[in-house]
């Protein structure tokens, strides 16, 4: 770890002014309005350790996500949760702090499922190391995973260790004409069967299904899943466009809402959604009444996020119940007693 960079971070923290932790800024739009001076992590860069046969990679927080991914690709490995990049500059630290996952979330789990260890600097400038590089580790509270999606509210990430997996040998995508209700039923049914479905997306009466895994498994499942559909390119391009919000659905300035719902929640009678993750992640565009949307999501057991755009006065995230909020505040006080890190961005 470059001592000078670390010392630089520490001095910023010890100056006791609110800080806005920032990597490549590819997710500046995400979360509540930010305040504080920017603390740029990008000087702290580099892959610290990568051992393909250990299925783990450790990188400094300012490392470009692109660099990390190309190192993995050279050894035919990847991040199966397919983190969105949104822009070329996104960093590994930002990826973990944002905690977002892409299409692979459906079959492979979320980013937090892959976090094995972190090194962070707390609000007193102390360097703390949690977890490690091994697959199973229950010594001490799981502070590493707590950092996933914490949006920098608890500490400055310095290094992260992430579990990686081999890239699936085979992959195929099919497009099936289907209305929303039928699509939701079909994908939930399939999910209960041992099929190698690794991503789904539904929009405009079309269901896209990606199969991936062993060659034989994909071949065997294709007829079952793809009946009535057409196989489209073997390439992953459509899924990358979805992942990075480059797809036409995401174009323009209209507010983007994200609903996280139990996959079996019925079709909502609200606008024209893009539905991912087997029904678990539903995107909406346009002006929606936040309270109404949140109440609706809650009534199905989920929550709604003002993901991008819209009225900055509306909280980005669904409100926490009082007990959960109290725990958030108590934890914040332990890691960041002066309240320096990304004040208000997450809660």
């Amino acid at each position: 770890m470059s001592e000078a960079t670390i010392q630089g971070f520490r001095e910023r923290i010890l100056a006791r002014q609110p800080l806005r932790i920032r990597g490549g800024g590819s997710k500046d739009f995400y979360g509540n309005t930010m305040s504080g001076d920017v603390l740029d992590t990008r000087a702290h860069t580099g892959i610290v350790n990568y051992e393909p046969s250990e299925l783990v990679i450790t990188a400094k927080a300012g490392t470009l996500l692109l660099d990390l991914k190309s190192a993995l690709a050279e050894r035919r490995q990847w991040l199966p949760f397919e983190p969105p990049e949104f822009a070329a500059g996104s960093t590994v630290g930002g990826m973990v702090a944002a905690g977002l996952s892409g299409p692979g979330r459906l079959a492979h789990g979320a980013l937090r499922d892959y976090i094995l260890g972190v090194t962070l600097m707390d609000g007193e400038g102390r360097v703390l190391k949690f977890g490690g590089e091994v697959m199973k580790n229950v010594a001490g509270f799981d502070v590493s995973r707590l950092m996933a999606g914490s949006l920098g509210s608890l500490g400055l990430l310095l290094e992260v260790s992430i579990k990686v997996l081999p890239v699936p040998v085979a992959e195929a995508t099919v497009r099936i004409p289907m209305n929303e209700r039928d699509a939701l039923t079909a994908i939930n049914r399939w999910a209960g069967q041992p099929l190698p479905i690794t991503a789904t997306a539904w929009l405009s009466d079309t269901l896209f299904v990606r199969l991936a895994g062993a060659d034989a498994a994909v071949k065997a499942a294709l007829p079952q899943v793809g009946a009535g559909g057409t196989a489209i390119s073997a390439e992953n391009a459509p899924w990358i466009a979805l992942r990075d919000h480059a797809h036409a659905f995401f174009k323009g300035d209209a507010p983007l809402w994200r609903l996280a719902l139990p996959t079996t929640s019925p079709a909502l009678t609200l606008g024209t959604p893009l539905i991912e993750w087997g029904g678990g992640q539903r995107w909406l565009r346009g002006e929606h009444d936040a309270n109404h949307l949140r109440a609706l999501a809650r009534s199905h057991g989920g929550h709604a996020t003002r993901f991008r755009g819209g009225d900055p006065a509306i909280a980005a995230f669904a409100p926490l119940d009082p007990v959960t909020l109290r725990l958030h505040q108590e934890l914040k006080r332990r890691f960041d007693p002066q309240g320096l890190f990304n004040p208000g961005r997450l809660f």
């Binding site: 905690g99 979330r105 979320a110 937090r112 229950v138 509270f141 799981d142 502070v143 995973r145 707590l146 996933a148 999606g149 914490s150 509210s153 608890l154 996280a260 719902l261 139990p262 993750w277 678990g280 992640q281 199905h300 057991g301 989920g302 929550h303 996020t305 995230f317 669904a318 409100p319 926490l320 959960t324 725990l327 958030h328 934890l331 997450l346 809660f347």
Partner: peptide, 18 residues
Amino acid sequence: SHAPDAPGLDLLALFIGS
């Protein structure tokens, strides 16, 4: 949550193994 995630910090991850 029964949804893929919940708002706020991942207290579920922190709690498991505690």
